[in-house]
Each structure stands twice: as C-alpha cells, then as structure tokens.
C-alpha cells in the first residue's frame, strides 16, 4: 500500500502543484488533493480560523480539514521564501503552526521550511528533507527531484504561453494555435489563489470569458518582463507575489492591447494594501485605462460582483471604441 499524501487545493497549490505532485509520486506515494473550494469547505475553514484571517487562509483551513481523514500525510510546506531576498507573506510563514494549533485530529504533517532568502540555486536540500518522510533512498530522491523540476518547467512554460493553471495541470500539449485573438483583452492581477479559485472570486474568470473577453493574468507574463518593470521601483519589492503583480501590472499599463485591468485583492490583505495602491496609482497617473479593484471576503455577494464587472466591461468597450481598437 503506497502512502497517501494530501495536498490542499489552496494557497500556492496553483503555483507549485506539478512540482510537488511529481516529486511525491516519483517516490512511490499516492498524491491526492482536496476538491475545489465549496461553501462547505469555507464553512469548515471559518470554524477553524480567527475572524481576522484573510479569506484565502480561511479557505486553506477548510481544505486541510477536508483532507485530514483520508490521507497519511498532509503536505503544507512552510513557504518562507522562494526567491532570494523575497518572502511570500507572514501568514505563509506561520501557516503550519496555525494549522497544528487550530485543527484537531491531524495526520502526520510534512511542513518542511522552504527558505531561499539567502541563497540562489535550487531547492534540492529542502526536497531531500521532504522526501525523507517517505523514502530513505537518496538516489531515488535525486531522480524524483529532477523529474519534478522538469515537469514544473513544462508547466511554467504552458502558463507563460497563456494557459491558466487549472488547464495547464491537465493539458500537457500546449496552446492550440488558433490564430490571432480578436476579443478584447483584459488583465487580471492578483494572488494565484484569488484569481484561480473560482469559489473565492465568484467565478470571475468564467464570467469574463462568457462576456467575450480574452484574459491574461500576471502569471502569463514572462519573469524577465516582470523583473524589468519591477526593477523600475525605488526599492526592491520583497514579496514574490507582489513583485510579480506590480511588475506585470506596470507592463500591462504600457501594453496597448490591454484594454483594462482588474486587480483582485483579499479583504484586509497586508501586501495587497501596498501593492494594490502602487498599481492603482500607476494606472491613474497613466490616464484613462479602465481599472477595477475587486476586494474579496466571505461576505462578498454575487450580485455586487456582477454589477461591478458589468460596469467595468462597459468602460472597456467604450474606451476601446473611443480609441478605435
């Protein structure tokens, strides 16, 4: 019987799932994830977390709860830093502790710290530590890590080519070449767990697609471009996700094919309060690019979202006609 490792479908799942999944599977484990976020998942999360936590963290608690009875291990790495001199968010630093203290009846937890703050290079050491929970053979771990890395690289290139993560998890063929896209393009900028979890954002992506919008997200922008725009800041942004959001958004404001920007933020999110202000300020200084700031929490109502998106899309269309695109 292989050991079963559960990966919650929350937080940086949307960024690293292929890496984690391949690694553990190559070591002979069975990898399972929680289902998509639902009302029930959120309800569980609300019971386990403090009121002040942001929605993505509350939802993450719900996913841990959904997994805990059916797996041998829950995988919630402590994501301190995934890039030199950058962090994710204080809540990622403390998430494993929050889970341990607040969730009853947990199976074993793999909460290896990933900390690349002080060094360039790969994460082999941390993966060895993770792998050691289920496999004692260093050669096998090395091979699994290599395989996982190359899976991850392929996934990243599919995303850079314009796929959204959920699709890129499954579709391994790459983008079908369907010729130039004549739909108006709108950029969606936010943390991956906010823009790809359709429960959290009340189906934002689908709504836009159904309105005939072509969507690009901050994750579709190549790292090189993100960095060259983020590099124009007076001071290095020390949040990996925030740097990507700001760099990509600045790039979008310079890109004439982008007809509007939707910034998606969590209610009371710390990093978003800073980066969101920087992005909005940039857009406003640039002129009249349509901009929508969506703030999400568990009380966000569908009706409100729909109205605001409609108003935004009206602006996009008007603006497009006025500038003759």
């Amino acid at each position: 019987m292989p050991v079963i490792i559960g990966i919650p479908r929350s937080l940086l799942f949307y960024k690293y799932y292929p890496l984690w999944k391949t690694f553990f599977e190559e070591l002979g484990a069975e990898v399972t994830t929680s289902g998509h976020t639902t009302k029930a998942v959120l309800q569980e999360g609300l019971k386990l977390s403090v009121d002040e936590a942001c929605l993505p963290v509350k939802v993450a608690f719900g996913h841990v709860q959904a997994l805990r009875e059916r797996v041998d291990y829950i995988f919630i790495p402590r994501l301190v830093s995934v890039s030199p001199r950058e962090y994710i968010c204080p809540k990622f630093l403390g998430f494993p502790d929050m889970v341990r203290q607040c969730v009853q009846g947990l199976p074993a937890i793999i909460d290896t710290s990933i900390n690349m703050y002080r060094r360039e290079g790969d994460m082999f050491r941390q993966f060895s530590e993770m792998g050691a929970h289920i496999c004692k053979n260093p050669l096998k771990i090395t091979a699994a890590y290599r395989k996982a890395r190359s899976e991850m690289a392929r996934f990243d290139s599919r995303v850079e080519a314009g796929m959204l993560p959920e699709e890129a998890f499954i579709n391994r063929e790459g983008i079908p070449g369907d010729g130039p896209d004549h739909r108006p393009t709108v950029a969606v900028v936010g943390h991956p767990y906010n823009i790809y979890d359709s429960f959290i954002n009340i189906n934002l992506i689908k709504r836009l697609e159904e309105s005939g919008i072509n969507i690009v997200t901050a994750d579709n922008v190549p790292e090189r471009l993100v960095n060259s725009y983020a590099g124009t800041l007076n001071k290095k942004l020390f949040w990996t996700l925030g740097r990507r959001m700001v760099g990509a958004a600045y790039h979008f404001t310079d890109n004439p094919s982008i007809r509007g920007i939707i910034h998606v933020a969590s209610f009371a999110c710390g990093p978003d309060s800073m980066t969101g202000d920087m992005i909005e300020r940039k857009v406003r200084r640039k002129g009249n690019l349509p901009f929508l700031n969506l703030i999400l929490d568990e009380h966000t109502g569908e009706a409100g979202i729909v109205t605001r998106i409609e108003a935004f899309l009206d602006m996009v269309n008007m603006h497009g006609q006025a500038s003759g695109i």
């Binding site: 977390s49 403090v50 002040e52 936590a53 968010c89 204080p90 809540k91 630093l93 403390g94 502790d97 929050m98 203290q101 607040c102 009371a268 999110c269 710390g270 309060s273």
Partner: peptide, 16 residues
Amino acid sequence: PFTCMPEIVAQSVLPS
C-alpha cells in the same frame, strides 16, 4: 492593528 499580518498569525495560536 487591524490587518496586521504577523499578529494575526500570533492571534491564531494564542488560544491553544
């Protein structure tokens, strides 16, 4: 302060 991230983490584990 409302929205303070490090302290929300601390607040989450203080009950235990």
